[in-house]
Amino acid sequence: MDINRKSSLETYTIIASFIVLVFAMLGVCLHIGFVHKMDLAALNWFNRMFKAPAMNYNGGLFNDVMTLAASYGDAFSFVLLAVAGAVILFVKRYYIVSLWILATVGFGGILGILLKEIFQRSRPYDHLLVDTGFSFPSGHSLSSTLIAMTLLRVVIPKFSNKALRYTAYVMIAVLWVSILFSRLYIHAHFLTDVLGGTALGILWVLGMKYIGHLITPFLQKLPLLKKSKIYTLCTK
């Protein structure tokens, strides 16, 4: 895939994510009937397909996978992953991209918390007691998207080994989708919560990617960062 096609795909992704985020936000904020019915329809579908939600490892392989994704796909896990990745890059003297990862994940997470306080949406009536706080946007969806998009659009494209690169793509995509699905499977969120968190994460990473690309030349002039190795945020 050449640069122009990647640029076009990224542009379409930004537009689609923006539309989804605005749709979800307006639907939740204005209590639009169609959006409410869509959320209830999705919730009822999961009820019919998977019965009562369960967070345990005694309900078969699929339930085990969903429990695992729901248990370890939270914001804290991804913050630790982001910090670990940033530390590794920092040690390798990729100072600027290391700071970029921390800023992208950190400020993206803070934005999600602020939006939760603004919308103050209650969770589904039958959510598990382990789920606390407000529902929109989904914190798991946002945090997993921040990390997944960072890996998919910034880190993995740098892998020189083609087989390793595509294997990593598939593994991250499967893990990401599993976490998103698990939020609906255990009734922790409405569909629009997951859509909103995912769209916000995609927009945030791609926006920060663009900002990082613009300010990198200026950051490289700073005394503390001028020895940083170059790690372009735009993919090849």
Rank of each mutant, 00 (worst) to 15 (best):
G27R: 08
G27W: 09
V28P: 08
C29E: 14
H31I: 01
G33F: 02
F34T: 06
F34K: 07
V35F: 14
H36N: 05
D39C: 07
L40R: 08
L40D: 10
F46K: 03
R48P: 00
R48D: 12
F50N: 08
K51L: 11
K51R: 10
A52T: 15
A52C: 06
P53Q: 04
A54C: 05
A54N: 03
M55E: 10
Y57E: 11
G59N: 11
G60H: 08
F62V: 13
N63Y: 11
N63V: 12
N63L: 14
D64L: 11
T67Q: 01
L68H: 01
L68M: 05
A69I: 10
A69F: 10
S71L: 09
S71F: 04
Y72S: 14
G73Y: 03
G73P: 06
D74W: 02
D74C: 06
S77K: 08
F78N: 15
V79D: 13
L80M: 15
A82D: 07
A82P: 03
V83K: 06
A86Q: 08
A86I: 09
V87G: 07
I88D: 15
L89H: 02
F90G: 03
R93E: 11
R93D: 12
R93P: 08
Y95G: 06
I96C: 05
V97A: 01
V97Q: 05
S98E: 04
S98I: 09
S98R: 09
I101Y: 05
I101A: 09
L102W: 07
V105M: 07
G106H: 04
F107K: 00
F107D: 01
F107V: 14
G109S: 02
I110N: 01
L111D: 00
L114V: 14
L114Y: 09
L114R: 04
L115P: 03
L115Y: 02
I118N: 06
I118H: 11
F119E: 12
R121D: 06
S122C: 09
P124V: 00
D126Q: 13
D126C: 02
V130H: 13
V130D: 10
G133T: 00
G133K: 03
F136T: 11
F136R: 09
F136I: 12
P137C: 14
P137D: 09
G139E: 08
S141Y: 08
L142W: 12
S143T: 15
